[in-house]
Nucleic acid binder design. Structure first.
Lengths: 244, 244
DNA sequence: CCGAGCCCTTGATCTGGGTCAATGCCGGCT
DNA sequence: AGCCGGCATTGACCCAGATCAAGGGCTCGG
């Protein structure tokens, strides 16, 4: 259990209701971002409210006024954009510690939906932006996160524009394992549906299913069940993903 | 000709060698970003060196150590990522006023190449980062730019993952016209090759050619020559692009 | 423990866009 | 002006992945 200064260092995530979540946060959370002064963390904590949502619950919808920003504390969230006729593109899956809601304008540019049960910290937009002005270190952290998201988006454009179905699936399985720091034989959870994977990779569920099967039959991964796999041969998987 | 304080407001772009470029910059340049103190502008200006490149010249290559950051002053630059076997995905075209080179790590995550003759201001990475620390307003500007780039990247993922060839081409023609603030009947320049358009839209040159033709035959645009078009029917073009 | 419904997988067929193959055309050089 | 080389267009054909169509097997509620 963190003492007073420990609580300050863990910021918003060590508030009542967040106990037990600090493990992830220490690794990935906004609260422990480099060089953020205890002062800023306390102010962040004062601003935050805790939020829990069941799986499949919409967090916010594209075009809706952006009133809040969030850090994901627990569970998985998907971000997506949709066309009027219902075609969807999932632009990313968020894991605990990820930040969401930075809107360039005053409304969200994408929708966010809980994939699993999720726990979040919510920050009201106004207060957060004022806090941002007073704490350049926080702004730096956001800039750093935005540029790594941008790099990930560019990688995804390469995938969507130029990779074959099998390469897409291999890339996805590899990068998802990587994000959980599991490229060995540890079990990797795949909490989203085949439909979500398809909408993330620009494919159909049938093609996703067949491609996963193909990757498994080549011995690059081992499917434990629909929602769990092991990376069996990281090197060949990397090659099947056309580098990454 | 700007006086002393005018020169300061226009920052790096009103230095010797940049005369005559201020028109674009006043509209889009980094130098006039909101609320940037004259002090910061002068420091930026002191840091900048002017750089000219012919068309097709590589500015930097993916993976190369990121020693510089740039603002594009004149011409068009393309950013791309490539796979080992040569497949390419262009992730964006930059117009005057755009900023490039923000690398999350110490090496560039993509390549940058001049599409036309270009003029740039170059900032050495070290100096720029130090300057960033002293001027939160500059950092805010970069964050704002990064988030609008991110929104553009998400839009492009939707295009690459879910739109048909004709929708992609319509979206591209529309957004390119928009970025030049020309959605009426003004002539829009299309300086890049069909190959570049194909690599941007995740298509082949043949499909790009056929799709442009189709969009023209439906009377949505008028092709003046290979590198110039007019938007004839913005509304129907918007619909053909599946909204945008 | 059983049944219903929802995912998911697997198979058969179809098609949008890729590939291959001629031309056509423009711009630069002599 | 005329030629040359690279880019663009156009046409014929093909294939990866979409679509259509059956099952199969978790999961959850009763």
């Amino acid at each position: 259990m963190p003492d007073g200064s420990g609580a300050a260092r863990l910021g918003v995530l060590s508030r009542p209701g967040c106990v037990g979540l600090c493990e992830q946060c220490r690794i990935r959370g906004l609260a422990v971002c480099r060089a953020l002064e205890p002062q800023a963390l306390d102010e962040l904590a004062a601003l935050a409210t805790r939020l829990e949502l069941p799986a499949k619950k919409l967090l916010f919808d594209e075009g809706e006024p952006a009133r809040s920003l969030f850090t994901l504390v627990e569970g998985v969230v998907k971000l997506y954009k949709a066309l009027p006729d219902g075609r969807r593109q999932i632009t990313g899956f968020l894991l605990p510690g990820d930040f969401l809601g930075l809107a360039h304008f005053t409304s969200y540019a994408y929708s966010a939906e809980a994939v699993t049960e999720v726990g979040l910290c919510r920050f009201p937009r106004e207060g957060f932006l004022r806090l941002l002005e007073r704490h350049p270190a926080l702004e730096r952290e956001l800039l750093s996160r935005a540029s790594s998201e941008l790099a990930a988006a560019q990688e995804q454009m390469l995938l969507l524009g130029r990779k074959s179905a099998k390469e897409r699936v291999a890339s996805f399985l590899l990068s998802f394992a990587r994000r959980q720091a599991m490229v060995g034989r540890e079990l990797v959870a795949l909490p989203m549906s085949r439909n979500d994977i398809a909408d993330y990779l620009g494919l159909t569920i049938e093609t996703v299913s067949r491609s996963i099967r193909a990757v498994e039959e080549e011995g690059l991964i081992r499917l434990v069940d629909r929602h769990h796999y092991r990376v069996v041969d990281p090197d060949r998987l990397r090659r099947a993903a056309a580098a990454g």
